[in-house]
């Protein structure tokens, strides 16, 4: 898919990214959790959440069969409930992209996302990162999730980070690029904002909070800071950038809070899986349990839902 966001030379000095009002952000984030969402609206919201999930398996123990199972689950979330959407994508390690493509075929609604650039640490040469990206794309990945070099970022080498993202974007070709900031390692909201600005300017189609591999993952305040960076970019250039919070979102209620935040911060345009995703593995089942509760009136038990 061709997308608008290309690396641009803006002359921006990323040291001048706007500072973030930590207290204000936290308080604003708190307010998103107080909306009352009931019955039909809730059901619509839950369907939307399902349709925005990047169903993920990024374990050392992954096998081709696990990936096939995941692909099946992405298209058949819970067949006993009618009218459920498929998930937005499956997210796998590069060696499993071929398997996923075979399992899904070429016409699936489910996209294939692959982490590349030596996920999750990113510690390797630029050459190998580009090689891994090209291979994943040629194997059939629609989307690439890259990690930024946090070490370089934290030592102030912003140009290196920018150039690296731009190079990976070029290697992606038509595949969309999601840039993982790994906010849990960036220490401050100011840094999150700065990294977001760099990723957006360097050509990221999506910015993504976390790898899900460290304890501190996506939170509402961090996501809000990133959404504000997207909003400012949109106001300035008219170009949309997507958002993907990942890790730590496992309850449907929390996912609905995120949707509220996206709508109230960026507007309805972003409420599609073209522009907003959840990176999650256990969220889907919790949402399915809530949908089943709405349908049947009975509270559900986890063991009635397939694990993968």
């Amino acid at each position: 898919m061709k997308t608008g966001n290309r690396a641009c030379v803006t002359g921006d000095d990323f040291r001048n990214s706007p500072p973030v009002d930590h207290v204000g952000i936290v308080e604003r984030a708190e307010r998103f959790t107080t909306r009352s969402i009931k019955s039909i609206t809730k059901r619509a919201g839950l369907n939307m959440v399902l349709n925005m999930i990047d169903l993920t398996t990024l374990e050392g123990a992954d096998t081709p069969n696990k990936v096939r199972q995941l692909c099946y689950k992405a298209e058949h979330l819970h067949d006993s409930i009618l009218g459920l959407p498929s998930t937005a994508a499956v997210c796998v390690f590069p060696p499993f992209v071929k398997t996923a493509r075979e399992a899904l075929g070429d016409n699936s609604l489910v996209k294939i996302a692959s982490v590349a650039t030596y996920f999750p640490s990113g510690h390797t040469t630029l050459k190998s990162k580009l090689e891994e990206t090209r291979r994943a794309v040629s194997d059939g990945a629609d989307e690439i999730d890259m990690v930024i070099s946090r070490g370089r970022f934290l030592s102030g080498d912003y140009n290196y980070v920018f150039d690296e993202i731009a190079a990976v974007k070029e290697a992606c070709g038509d595949a969309r690029l999601k840039v993982i900031l790994e906010t849990g390692e960036l220490a401050t909201l100011d840094n999150v904002r700065r990294a977001s600005d760099i990723a957006i300017h360097a050509g990221g189609d999506f910015i993504k909070t976390s790898t899900g591999k460290i304890a501190s993952a996506a939170t509402i305040p961090i996501t809000l800071v990133m959404l504000l960076a997207i909003r400012d970019h949109y106001a300035k250039t008219g170009k949309m950038v997507g958002m993907k919070p990942a890790g730590g979102i496992s309850k449907s209620k929390l996912a609905l809070h995120y949707l509220v935040m996206v709508k109230e911060t960026l507007g309805e345009q972003w409420l599609t899986n073209e522009w907003f995703r959840f990176g999650a593995s256990s969220l889907a089942n919790d949402v399915l349990m809530q949908v089943a509760k709405l349908e049947s009136g009975h509270y559900q038990a986890a063991h009635y839902f397939s694990k993968d």
């Binding site: 009136g297 009975h298 509270y299 559900q300 038990a301 986890a302 009635y304």
Partner: peptide, 8 residues
């Protein structure tokens, strides 16, 4: 009702 229908 809620207690006796709870699937878990």
């Amino acid at each position: 009702d809620n207690v006796s229908t709870h699937m878990d």
